[in-house]
Each structure stands twice: as structure tokens, then as C-alpha cells.
Computed example of a mutant assay.
Amino acid sequence: MKVRVEIDDSLTDKEIVIKAPKYDAEVAQLYDAISRQSAKVQSLVFYKGDSEYYLSLDDVLFFETVDRQVHAHTVANEYAIHHRLYELEMMLTGQFMRISKSAIINLGNVFSLTRSVSSVVVKFKNSSKQVYVSRRYYKPLKDRLERRG
């Protein structure tokens, strides 16, 4: 089976097409897996106070665990989310990446990496928010950022 990604700036939404000589068990399984994954990602609910919010994942800068609660950070706000980081890591593919035991970032919103003797800090576009990268994740993060641009 070949896997290919095509980038088309004229598209407004993502589309997945499965091309096969016939509809068989493998195609059905692949279709079901993609459909389930897409439904999971689209069903993320963000909570703040008594309200539920349905945000675009593009607006999320990063997810972070603080005191056993996972928070989603946007440029202006912070929301609680009722998923564990390991669940989010499985649900969010492509533009998201784990960078420490307690954080997953949106690679599309990364502005800079600042490296010092003791740490690496990720800074985000149009925001003063930042998050630390574990040494273990620095090289894979740097590689992913270089490939994207």
C-alpha cells in the first residue's frame, strides 16, 4: 500500500481519498479507522466555568497537564478538557506533537525555540505564553519544525 500527502493551497478543508482496485476488508478497515479518528478529533469539547466551547484545533497553542487536569491554551484563554494527554496524543495527529511528559503543542503555532544551558522554551505566535521542551523531545521537535517549513 502506498501512502501519499498532497498539499493544495486552494482547498479550504482537509480531504482523505482511498484509491483501491476493489472494496475489500483492508479498505473497509482503513475507512473505519479514519472515520473513527476523524469523529474523535471533531468531538473535543473545551470547558471554562459553566460553559462548553467548540473551538477549532488551529486556535489551540498547546495542551498542558497541571494538577492532574488537562488544559488547552489559546492566545487569549485557557480551557479545561476532559481527556488525558495520552488520549489527546492518539487523537491529535499531524500538526500536534508531545514535547514533554506534561505538554503537547500545535506545531502550526510555534514561533520560536529558545535554547539555554538548562532548558528549551517554545514560544508561540501572537502570544506571551510559553512551554518547556524535555531534552528527550528536543531533537524530534526540531526535526518536525524544519520539515514543515
Rank of each mutant, 00 (worst) to 15 (best):
D50T: 12
L88T: 03
R68P: 11
S102T: 14
Y31K: 15
R36G: 07
F46T: 02
N106M: 12
K40I: 07
V121S: 02
I16A: 09
A25D: 10
D32R: 13
V121W: 01
A76P: 10
E15D: 04
Y31E: 15
R68K: 15
Y54E: 08
D8W: 13
A20R: 02
K123S: 14
Y79F: 14
D67E: 15
L113Q: 09
V117L: 14
E52K: 05
L141D: 02
A28I: 15
V75T: 13
I18W: 06
K139I: 15
E87L: 06
L107Y: 01
K142L: 14
V75H: 07
Q29V: 06
Y54C: 00
G149Q: 11
F63Y: 14
Y86R: 06
R135A: 15
I99N: 03
L92F: 02
R144L: 05
T12W: 08
L30N: 08
E52Q: 07
D13H: 11
R148I: 06
F96I: 03
M90P: 00
Q42T: 04
I16G: 07
M91F: 10
P21Y: 04
Q69S: 10
V17M: 01
H71P: 07
H83F: 11
R36V: 11
A103H: 03
V3E: 09
I16R: 01
Y79C: 07
S100N: 05
S127E: 13
S35Q: 11
K142H: 13
P140R: 13
R98E: 00
N109K: 14
S134K: 12
R98I: 00
Q95H: 06
D59G: 06
N77M: 05
E26K: 04
L145W: 05
E26G: 03
V133A: 05
V45G: 01
V3I: 13
S128F: 11
R84F: 08
P21F: 04
G49Q: 06
L92S: 03
V27D: 04
